[in-house]
């Protein structure tokens, strides 16, 4: 049973981690908590559904429930959601950053979240969608340990994206510049870095990763207009748990939250699953408010 909790927890935790990376990056760079971040996951998931439909219904790959069209649609959805994040920043947050304080930005992000969610509900209606109506066959990995092929592929893809993000931040000039702007924007400017460009790169990356998380959630669970909003609390819990601004922290925080949620189902009952992120978040804030990897503030 422990093995089963781990595999379910790690799979959903990897998705939470993906979403939390963008949240923690925008917080580290712009110093505000973006409540619209979950909607990037929703938009990504629905955009991928449109894309997969447009690319035609090819046969599923192997034991998976989806075919190549969804893989292509995932990439298109990531790119489009990156553009959505950039557009939202240009239209809303950038203007408010110039004049407003952090609380104005947070409230504005609430508004943006509501608008983005309502747009999805208006276009697709409140009922859930699935990428496919095929039944996902479970594979027996070991006695008492079952996972669907979808789960395993989604987990692998999420881990690859996290690794790519880690390499980007630690090994490339762009990542170096992002760390510099996050640590000290004034000094970064004097060192010849244009923070506006770094901010744009961060929105694009955060939006794309959130979209991937949304698509993965759509593959393993379902698509609903509120899916991203419901993801928001686990995302914040993961980001704060890992230390706000820390990308490895967000990844690890996501895994911890995912496993805790999965463990809550047999221990406390499925109805308490959603409360777990909240409990972990509160405990962390009381014990170590900086988070596991947080050094600042």
């Amino acid at each position: 049973m422990i093995g089963q909790i781990l595999i379910d927890g790690i799979t959903s935790g990897a998705m939470i981690g993906l979403g939390a990376i963008g949240l923690t990056l925008t917080y580290g760079l712009l110093r505000f908590a973006n409540f619209a971040h979950g909607e990037f996951a929703t938009w990504g998931a629905y955009l991928a559904m449109l894309g997969a439909g447009a690319f035609g219904g090819a046969a599923p790959i192997g034991a998976l429930t989806f075919g190549w069209p969804l893989v292509v649609a995932l990439m298109v959805a990531m790119a489009l959601t990156a553009l959505l994040a950039l557009a939202l920043d240009a239209a809303l947050f950038r203007r408010l950053r110039r004049h407003g304080n952090a609380i104005v930005l947070v409230i504005a992000s609430f508004g943006a979240s509501l608008a983005l969610r309502s747009a999805i509900e208006f276009a697709f209606g409140p009922e859930p969608y699935y990428y496919t109506t095929d039944i996902a066959m479970t594979l027996r990995l070991a006695p008492g340990l079952r996972a669907t092929a979808d789960q395993l592929v989604v987990l692998a893809a999420a881990l690859v994206l996290m690794l790519a993000m880690h390499v980007l931040l630690t090994r490339t000039p762009l990542g170096r510049a992002m760390r510099a702007v996050s640590e000290n924007p004034d000094l970064a400017r004097l060192a010849g870095i244009d923070p506006a460009r770094i901010v744009r790169a961060t929105w694009a990356i955060g939006g794309a990763l959130a979209a991937a998380a949304g698509v993965f959630l759509g593959v393993t669970v379902q698509l609903r207009p509120s899916m991203g909003f419901e993801l928001l609390l686990p995302l914040f819990a993961a980001a704060i748990l890992g230390g706000v601004g820390s990308v490895p922290g967000a990844m690890l925080g996501g895994l911890v939250i995912g496993i805790a949620e999965a463990a809550a189902v047999p221990l406390a009952g499925a109805q308490y699953r959603a409360a777990v992120a909240f409990v972990v978040l509160l405990a962390m804030l009381l014990v170590r408010p900086r988070g596991l990897f947080g050094g600042r503030e």
Partner: peptide, 9 residues
Amino acid sequence: QRGERAFAN
């Protein structure tokens, strides 16, 4: 630096 641009990497 080209590597500071989002897509070059």
